[in-house]
């Protein structure tokens, strides 16, 4: 549980924004869409892992 996950998400966001812009400039609209989608899914999985960890921890603490 470190701060680096924040930086990771921010970096992935920056990277997908830049890659999407470049691909859009070169006229590859559909690849740009897929690149953006891939970045979104990666970040989504990271955040979902965090949420799942939190829920399981709460479950053990409050003995549901």
């Amino acid at each position: 549980m470190d701060v680096e996950i924040i930086f990771k998400i921010a970096a992935i966001g920056l990277l997908t924004a830049v890659v999407g812009q470049i691909l859009k400039q070169t006229g590859k609209e559909e690849i740009s869409t897929f690149a953006t989608l891939a970045g979104l899914v990666i970040v989504l999985v990271m955040v979902l892992n965090l949420i799942g960890d939190l829920f399981s921890t709460l479950k053990t603490i409050f003995n549901f």
Binding site: I5, I9, A10, G13, T16, L44, M46, L50, L54
Partner: peptide, 19 residues
């Protein structure tokens, strides 16, 4: 740059503080 990623960063930060 990307509005949806900002939300994810917010969620992750909140999680880390809670953990």
């Amino acid at each position: 740059l990307r509005n949806d990623f900002a939300i994810f960063i917010g969620i992750a930060g909140g999680m880390i503080i809670i953990f």
